[in-house]
Structure formats: structure tokens, C-alpha cells
Nucleic acid binder design. Structure first.
Lengths: 124, 124
DNA sequence: GTTCAATCTGGAGTGCGCTCCAGGTCAAGT
DNA sequence: ACTTGACCTGGAGCGCACTCCAGATTGAAC
């Protein structure tokens, strides 16, 4: 069961091997296990962190803030409130982002409608 | 009527003065007028280009692609089909982006719900 | 035992999109 | 005429998030 090679962790998380190394280097991912030979071994727990990072990155959270979150989590249960607040603030920014994206998408569609009213090549 | 100073164009478009200069430098914005003293004068037409660029940037289009679009527009009416196709492809990417954002937003909200079930400080 | 793909390390390099700076110019207000 | 704030140019610098590289090591398969 749990214990994934780097390539497997990369495949499952959608991050590249280099990105996984980079995340470890900047302290996002700490305490990843090693084989006697020095190779990384990712646990299910590591994987679920990666899934969270995937979510946060896809929604535009900067790495520094993810690091902050991870650091809080490492500090223990008493930081739960702060972690929650951090995620809450982020979620609000994401909502704003979604509204903007929707608005600009609508503009874009309108612009395209303008072109659709023009005769295309071969439309006769 | 039409004829805006750089600062006014910046204010109306939401781009910084430096960004407006940069856009001109990379060929996004071409043929911006000048006063006898060399200062830029933005027309309503320039402004509407900026509004379009704002839309495309906000939806994640790279500058190179906006340049391509602007170039096509300069080439004349016969590129309308190609321009339309470019915008259409972009709109599809934006739709994908919106779906991803929504999906990850949902994950995020679920994660937050987990914290909400924990007693916060002072929740008693 | 040999091979060979996967992995390791440290560090340099990349791509993008600005952003800032120095040193000078312009023009509106007084 | 003078001051002052907006603007000019060319070019350097920055922040972010990777991405790539060289040269060495590991370990599963044959």
C-alpha cells in the first residue's frame, strides 16, 4: 500500500518531478521519507498534501501562502483557526476571480458574436 | 472628446503607465498618436483596444497571442475569419479554466467545511 | 555481474509580464 | 520666467514558478 516512487507521485499529483523537488526545497513538503539509497518515498499522506497543493495552485494561491499553511499545520492542532481563516480568505479571492472570469468571458462571447454575424469564407 | 493623456488611459483601462508603454514596445498597441512634444495621446479607438486587451489578459491570454490578434486586425478585413477562430479557441480554453476553477473551488469549500466542524477559539 | 532507466544533488537558466530607474523634456499654472 | 508634475527614452531589474543540466548513484531486471 502507501509508498510511492517519485514518478508515481508526480503522475498522481499532476506535478512534475522537478516541481516535487522544488516544493521540498522551498519547504512546502517537509519530511518526505527516503530509501536507504536516498530516493524519495511518498506516503498517502504526502499524496493528500499534494492534492491540496494542486487545488490551491489551480485556484491561484502563491507558494509562499501554501508554505504558510503547511507550516501552521506542522505547528499542531491549535493553529486550526488560523488555517481555516487563511483558506476562507483564499476562497473569497477565488470567488472574486470567478466573477471576473465570468464577466470577461461574457465580453469575449459577445465579441465573438460580432464575428459570427459576418459572412465567413465559404459561407456563401 | 477623444484624446486621452497617458494617465487617463491608464485609469480607464486599468493598466499602469509602464504597462501601456510596454504594450506599445512589444507591438500590441501600434500607431498611438503623439503631441508635438512627443507625449502619447490615446484615442477612443486605442481605448477600446485596451478594453479588449483587459478582457483577454483577465482570461489568461498570453501577450504573444494578443499581438497576433492585433496584427491580424491591422492586416484588414480578410483576416476576420482567422481572428474569430482565435477568439473561439481562446473562449474554449476559458471555459475549461472556469470548470477547473469551479471544481477546485468546491474542493476548497469542502476543506473549509471540515474546519467549520471543529470548535474554534472561543466557540465554547 | 552488467545494464539501464530512474533517481539523486546543487545550482544555473528560462519565460513571462511587468516594474523601476536615471536623466532629461514638456507644458500648465502663477 | 519659473516651478512643478506629468511625461519621455532606453535599458536594467524583479518576482514567480518552475525547468533544465551535469555528473554521480541506485536498484530492479536480465
Amino acid at each position: 500500500m502507501s509508498g510511492y516512487a517519485p514518478s508515481e507521485a508526480a503522475r498522481r499529483s499532476g506535478f512534475s518531478l522537478d516541481t516535487l523537488r522544488y516544493y521540498e526545497k522551498v519547504g512546502l513538503l517537509s519530511g518526505v521519507g527516503r530509501t536507504s539509497g536516498g530516493r524519495r518515498v511518498f506516503t498517502d499522506d504526502d499524496l493528500s498534501w499534494l492534492v491540496l497543493f494542486r487545488c490551491l495552485r489551480d485556484t491561484g494561491m502563491p507558494i509562499a501562502e501554501m508554505s504558510r499553511y503547511a507550516e501552521l499545520a506542522r505547528e499542531g492542532e491549535h493553529t486550526a483557526g488560523e488555517r481555516r481563516a487563511l483558506l476562507e480568505r483564499h476562497a473569497e479571492r477565488v470567488e472574486e476571480q470567478m466573477r471576473l472570469l465570468q464577466r470577461q468571458y461574457d465580453h469575449l462571447r459577445e465579441k465573438i458574436r460580432f464575428y459570427e454575424r459576418l459572412p465567413g469564407p465559404g459561407t456563401d
